[in-house]
Structure formats: C-alpha cells, structure tokens
Design a protein around this nucleic acid. Structure first.
Lengths: 154, 154
DNA sequence: AGCGATATCATGGGGCACTATGGGCGTCAA
DNA sequence: TTGACGCCCATAGTGCCCCATGATATCGCT
C-alpha cells in the first residue's frame, strides 16, 4: 500500500508529541524520508502533510506560473513562509508546535486523515464536522443530479 | 533540509541584537558564508536576506524583468546602494541597525520568514497582515477557478 | 484448535544537547 | 569619557535521543 488512506486519532503526550500512524510512516520511510513537509491548508483548518517531495511538487507548479505575476510571489510566500518541516523522532513522533496548533485548533488529540498522495492533521471535532459537511454536500449533489435526470439509475 | 522554510519570531535584546533562527543559520553555514547580504524588498516592508549570491540572483532576475536598459541600471543601483551586510556574531546573532528598522518598522521583535533560497525579516504585525492578505488572495483565486470548473474538492 | 511466544504500536518519561536570550568586559573611535 | 561593537560566558527552556511499558495483533508449535 503506497497511498495515504483512512483516519486515526492519536493523543498528544505531556511533552507535546504525537505518534504519526504507523501506516503513514511506512509510506514516508519507504521513500527514504525522515522529515515531513507541512502546509497550512488555504480553505480548511487543517495541515497538509507529506514528504519533502510534496514541496517540490508545489514548487514545480510554481515554476510554471509567470514568475513576475503577483500570484507567483503570493504562492512562493505561502509555500515557504506558511509551511514548515516536521521532524520525526526515533519513535515516529512529531512535536506539535504552535505553528500547528494555531491553524488547526489542535490541543489534546490529533486526527490523521489520509488524502491519497499526502495526509492531513485535524483537530478531531473539526474533522468530524468537516466529514459530515462533505457527506452532506455530496448527497445534495447526487440529489440534484437525480432531479435533472430521469429516474432509474444505478 | 537545504531550503529556508517556515517562520519564527525572535526578540531583540537590550543591545539591539537578535538571534537568527538556528535552522536558517545552519543553511548559511553549510554554504560557507559568515556574512549576509540584506536588501530592502521593493514591494514589501521587509528585508530579503541571504548569501552574497543573492545579489547576483536578484540582479539577473530584475534584468530580465524589464527590457529597458535604464530600468536595469536603476535596479542595479538600487541593489547596491540600498543593500547592506549583516555580520553574524559568535552566537549567531545580528545587530538590528537603523537600516533595518527604517524600512521594516521593526522595533522590539523580528519575524524571520523562509523564502526558499533566502529568507525575510519582518516586523511581526506586518508579517501577519501580509500573511493574511496573501492567503485571502490565493483563496479567492482558488474559488474563481472552481466556478469555472466542475465541482470536486478535497 | 488452543495457547504461549513474539512483534508491532501508541504512549510515557529520563536526561543530555542545543538554542535563544541576558549580560560582562575590553577595544576602538569620536 | 562615552557609546558602539566585538568576543566571551551564564542560564532557562526546549527539542531530541534513548529506553520502558502495556495493549493488541501475529505467528508457531503442539
């Protein structure tokens, strides 16, 4: 398995550390990384986390934009100033810094959620709320589609 | 890790010194520099700081931006006249000169922000303002893109 | 199939090293 | 002398490395 899948909630210990779920870790380690790149999601109170190549991927994307447009500057600032590395300790844990807490509202527990090529870190309640909202949206969309199409599908 | 990434805010002490974040320092040392070149950012109340090669890079960059030789000369003048060196002391600190304070509004604290190949120095509030504005702009752009494309989100 | 041995994982905690910060003191120049 | 600046040391807090524990899953042998 080489994709980030499913979600788990882990505790933050007294020293402010939290274990990255083993399945997620193994994906990272398989690629040979000991560091994680984390980015504060634009539209969600969550962090997008992946191997350092996640940053490279974004960077490449940036390179395709017009380097003199304001957007390119914004993107660069966002990627580099509003992102950071998370170091995995020997036991596969990361320390939950203020950088993480501020954006996510995380305090005592962390929900790790798979997102295919990377994963996300959430405050558990926020995650649950978001999950419910996404389900509702998808159901609504499905309903819309059924209204505009003749019944009898699937 | 060989890129400037993330942001930290450090205090200026009674003698007007401030610690350059250790991760940033290690990148600089790895490149073999003991001096930093600081440049007043054109569009932002911030300083762009990096090794001496930063000057060359900016020079080239700005030269390409505008075909008019006159502008290129202006840029070159600007780079050399409005830039300065920052010396790292034995403990990895730099003294915050008026050259820095005037352009940035820095007085008691400094926010160091990574920018991939170099880093920036900001007055904390200004940094936060800029960060929020950039996020807003990018979020708006993303929203625009979604309007013209089929739905589907993470 | 039963059941103990083994591995894996999340969590806890000790302790050292490093970092940010504070401050002393000598030097050099105005 | 006074003040700016270099170099040095002190210290509190944090981060990081290492090992311990218990719970759960896996394996292997009878």
């Amino acid at each position: 398995m080489n994709r980030f899948l499913g979600h788990v909630t882990n505790k933050i210990d007294a020293k402010g550390r939290v274990s990255v779920p083993a399945p997620f870790r193994s994906i990272i380690q398989m690629a040979g990384y000991t560091e994680l790149y984390a980015l504060r999601s634009l539209h969600l109170p969550a962090l997008d986390v992946g191997g350092p190549e996640l940053l490279t991927r974004f960077d490449k994307h940036l390179g395709q934009e017009d380097p003199f447009a304001e957007t390119a500057d914004d993107m660069s600032f966002y990627l580099h100033a509003d992102g950071g590395f998370l170091k995995l300790d020997g036991d596969g844990r990361i320390t939950v810094t203020d950088f993480i807490r501020e954006h996510t509202g995380i305090s005592a527990d962390v929900t790790f959620a798979g997102a295919n090529t990377h994963f996300q870190m959430w405050q558990p309640d926020q995650f649950e709320t978001h999950r419910a909202r996404v389900r509702a949206r998808l159901a609504e969309q499905r309903r819309q589609r059924e209204l505009s199409a003749p019944a009898g599908s699937s």
